[in-house]
Structure formats: structure tokens, C-alpha cells
Design a protein around this nucleic acid. Structure first.
Lengths: 201, 201
DNA sequence: AATCAAACGGACGAATTCGTCCGTTTAGGT
DNA sequence: ACCTAAACGGACGAATTCGTCCGTTTGATT
């Protein structure tokens, strides 16, 4: 008798889906993307069956993690773009936001299959659009290098969010990298100097 | 009747060991560190038995790859340090060398077990020493930021050597990152400006 | 050329991991 | 309170992967 509209999903289903994603982020970052599904299920406090119902295949799950990461990047990009101060400072805030959220990021580490779904690429494109706006603003104001592209910023952030073991104080090192890059972003070029062969084509 | 000195290893053994390492670098970079041993053996043109004789366990093999990578980094660091020009240019050359050799680098992607053997750490320490010398030279000459550390450079290079999928023209992007960083390395700070809160502790 | 220790290859049993299937539980509507 | 579609859990057979073992081949030495 009810309309053909799907009834909304049950509460526990939503909750479990969330738990699975959280567990997956944590374990994939720590152990790599081949971490056993059973382990993810265990940490999420559900059975494997539940995991496979929400994500038909491991790749679906990984794809969802990547998708979420771009969603996060998009939110950060928008926040940085709509921020009042200078565009250069906006870029800096974007970097710092990535660093703050880094434990929630999962980006593909090697060139495996899908992972990048069409929807993910859409979000990715939107990130580009927003960053483009930010860059253009800064360029007009003479704060940013004229040749800067959204890809430069995306690459930098994806590097910042990667799990890097072995290094003791990652937080400090990452902030330093941001610092170095921000200074490099300035439109002012210190000293081309004579001893600088140009080997960038 | 012969001395207790070990006779030198056979020629084919050395050759195979080399082939295995080459195959492993390629496949680990492409498919991740859990790539089946059998696959590595196949690409190397040997049987699995041979792989396991040279590297008793997968971790031994991975450890050898990482060790080699640091050896490469050490060679590049030494070349950059003993180079005639300015120290800043030396740093730049070090980065470019890493980029050139990036397909031979294998560094741990997540915080798994061993991989960092004691010997590897020794090489790592030596890299630090050489870079420290380079940095000090540049600092004395006023070419480099006073607070720069070897770790900054090591981190940057390890980021540059990582396999990053999805991005089309990695080469171009990486050169750009180097460019950005080199400019950031200069001792001259363009514009602290009023709108720049200092949130690096 | 004869010898043999060293090295090789790959079949194989053990151990994981995958993804499904189905009997049981439960949220939420009546 | 009752009902049922939706969701759950985890045992299980199929499929991979691991690492070993041993009969065969080969490089070096005499």
C-alpha cells in the first residue's frame, strides 16, 4: 500500500556503516590497503557479513574512503577560499587544515584499479574549481606566483596527509614543509643568481 | 685442505639476486608491498625457491629494498655536497637527483614491522651527516635558512620519490614542488605582513 | 674432463583470506 | 503487543599465498 518510495534506512544500519568506515580508515592507514576485511569488521564491532552488505567488495570500501577524503578536502578548500584574509594566508590555512585532518585521509598509494569512482572525480574537479578561485584572487592581488595551479596545491596536500612511519615527530616536520612552501609561494623571487642552470623545461 | 675462508659466491647467484631486487622494486612500487612472492620470482625469471634462498622472508626482501634506497640517497647527498657551486644549488641538485632516481626508490608506506634494519639506520644516519655539512656550508654563506635541518631535506625527498597514481604528469608536478621549495629555502623572507598569525609553535 | 658444493626450480601441504549463505535478531511501523 | 522487512553475524567452501623440501642442474676448481 505504501508508495514505491524507498523507506529510509534503519538507524543501526547507518551507525554500523559509519563504524565500518572509521575502522577502515584507521586500519588501512596503519596496515595498508590489504588489511583483512575480517579485521576491519572486528574493530568496527560487526560481523564480516555486515561489512560485505554495506560494501560489496573491498574496492568499494576503499573507494568510499577515498571519496570521503576528497569530500574533506573540498570542505577545507571552501573554508580557505571564503576566509576573509589574504589569499596567501588562505592557502596556508588550507594546508594546515589538511594536516589537522590527516588521520582521516585515505588516498591511493599505488596505481591499483578503480578506487577513483566517477563520483570521486567529480568532487575532485570541484576541489580544483574552488582552489582555482582562491589562486586567482591571490594572483590578482599580487600575492601568489602567476603560474601556480590547483594541482600544485592538491599535490602538496596529498603529500602532507600520507602516513609516514619512522620519522619521529611528523607533526613538526609537516609544519615545517608548509612553512617552506608558503615562502616559496610568494611572488617575490629572491635571487636567481648566476650559478643556477635552468634545467626545468 | 682449504682455509676456513668462504669461497666467493657463484656468478649466477649474484646475477639472480640482482634480478630479484630489480623485479621487486618495480612490482612493489606498482602493486604495493604485499605483491605475491611468486609474481616477483616470475618477473625475475627465477623460481620461488631462489627468491626465498636469497631473502629468507618477505620482510628481508623489503628490508633490502629500503636499504638500497638509502644507499642511493647517500650517494646523491654526497654528490650534492661535494659539488662546486652554491649550497642552495647543491640542495636543488639533491632534489633533482631524487626525482631522477625515483623509480629505484622503495620506502615504507605504513608503519609495518622491521623493514628498517640496524644497518639501514646507519646509512640513514650517514645521509644526515652529509646533508648537515651541506646545510652548514649554505648557512655560513647566508644562502639557507638558519633553522633548516637534514630531516627537512630527507622528508622532502622521501615525498618526491613516492609513487603517486592518478596524477597525469607527475614529472612536471614534482619539478614544480622542488621549485617551490627551493624558493622557500632562501634566507630572504619576502613579506611577513600584518595578516599572518604565527601558529607554528 | 671430472668432481662436487652451490644454486636452481617448482610441486606441495599449511595457513590465510575471500566473499557467500542462511538462520537469527531487531528496529520501527501499526 | 504484534508483525515483518531489514539488518545482523559468523560458519564455511573456494581460492590465494606462503614458505619448505628435495631431486636436478650448473659454475668453478683441480
Amino acid at each position: 500500500m505504501s508508495d514505491p518510495v524507498a523507506r529510509q534506512p534503519r538507524q543501526d544500519a547507518l551507525r554500523n556503516r559509519e563504524r565500518i568506515l572509521e575502522a577502515a580508515v584507521e586500519l588501512v592507514r596503519r596496515d595498508g590497503e590489504t588489511v583483512p576485511m575480517a579485521q576491519i569488521a572486528e574493530r568496527a564491532g560487526v560481523g564480516v557479513g555486515t561489512v560485505y552488505r554495506h560494501f560489496a567488495t573491498r574496492e568499494d570500501l576503499l573507494g568510499a574512503l577515498v571519496h570521503r577524503s576528497f569530500g574533506l578536502a573540498l570542505a577545507n578548500a571552501r573554508a580557505a577560499e571564503s576566509r576573509p584574509g589574504s589569499a596567501l594566508e588562505g592557502v596556508r590555512q588550507f594546508f594546515l587544515a589538511t594536516l589537522r585532518d590527516r588521520e582521516r585521509f585515505v588516498l591511493p598509494l599505488h596505481g591499483g584499479p578503480p578506487v577513483f569512482t566517477p563520483e570521486t572525480r567529480e568532487v575532485q574537479a570541484e576541489v580544483r574549481v574552488v582552489l582555482r578561485a582562491l589562486i586567482d584572487r591571490g594572483r590578482t592581488a599580487g600575492e601568489l606566483r602567476g603560474d601556480l595551479t590547483p594541482e600544485d596545491l592538491i599535490l602538496a596536500t596529498s603529500l602532507l596527509s600520507r602516513p609516514l612511519p619512522g620519522t619521529g615527530d611528523w607533526e613538526r616536520l609537516a609544519r615545517r614543509q608548509i612553512d617552506l612552501m608558503i615562502h616559496g609561494l610568494g611572488a617575490i623571487v629572491p635571487e636567481p643568481g648566476p650559478g643556477t642552470p635552468r634545467d626545468d623545461a
